[in-house]
Design a protein around this nucleic acid. Sequence first.
DNA 1: ATGGTTTTGACAATCATTATCAATAAGCGT
DNA 2: ACGCTTATTGATAATGATTGTCAAAACCAT
Lengths: 132, 132
Amino acid sequence: MKRNTWQREAVREALDGTEGFISAQALHSTLHASGSPIGLATVYRALGDLATTGEADSLQSPDGEALYRACSTTGHHHHLICRNCGSTVEIAADEVEAWAHRVAGEHGFTRAAHVVDVFGLCANCTRLVAAE
Amino acid sequence: MKRNTWQREAVREALDGTEGFISAQALHSTLHASGSPIGLATVYRALGDLATTGEADSLQSPDGEALYRACSTTGHHHHLICRNCGSTVEIAADEVEAWAHRVAGEHGFTRAAHVVDVFGLCANCTRLVAAE
DNA sequence: ATGGTTTTGACAATCATTATCAATAAGCGT
DNA sequence: ACGCTTATTGATAATGATTGTCAAAACCAT
């Protein structure tokens, strides 16, 4: 049976209160900083569970870290991520949605899950870089 | 200055002779199996270089491994990857291409590089899983 | 409150990747 | 062809994220 513990709640809330993606390590640090004695392993487990149940999205950062994000809607959405400052913008991707399923189907694939994330430089960072 | 070594050539050729994506570790094993005494660190370096110069594509597998693939054309393309057996199908993504740039532009982003990969179960593995 | 079971958490183990650094070898000028 | 300078190699250690272990603690139906 699935039990409710304050730890799981803490992780869920911490994730809800976070803008954009965050790594398990960072989330653990945040919780600790807030005075929570939650264990690192527990944070990993909770995040894994949330991702499995669809309550959180997860993706791999370019340097191999797993990043998580609270997923309010059950609906699928994608992200525009600044390579420099890490800010994210949620984007709708209906066209891509349809495309992904069609292409997967054309090749006999089932259970298609797509990873569509656009990395770039946000307006702000573009300016900063140009000023160098 | 950039020097040419047989090691770099070996990695390039091994990658060319590989279907689909392969991890650095796997490529190193393959090379060793072929009798090459090349070092693991060197394989990592060579792959990193190839990815930087655009001679190879790289992506992160769902479990955090970096995967590489020889990139014959300079043209951009995407992949349909079987979660189970790892086989890949190269897919055209013109629509997505245009979409990614448009969306990035709408939010003031520049230098957009997108990661569009579809993970699923190929026809074969779908059958295997169903038979369980 | 009690018991059976799940969950936790400190720590060890694992695994991919990167750093270190002495030894080697590429490519240049001669 | 010969050195010489310097990039590259490779064995190994270090790192860093993630997962496994397992006894102790917490949850919940009773």
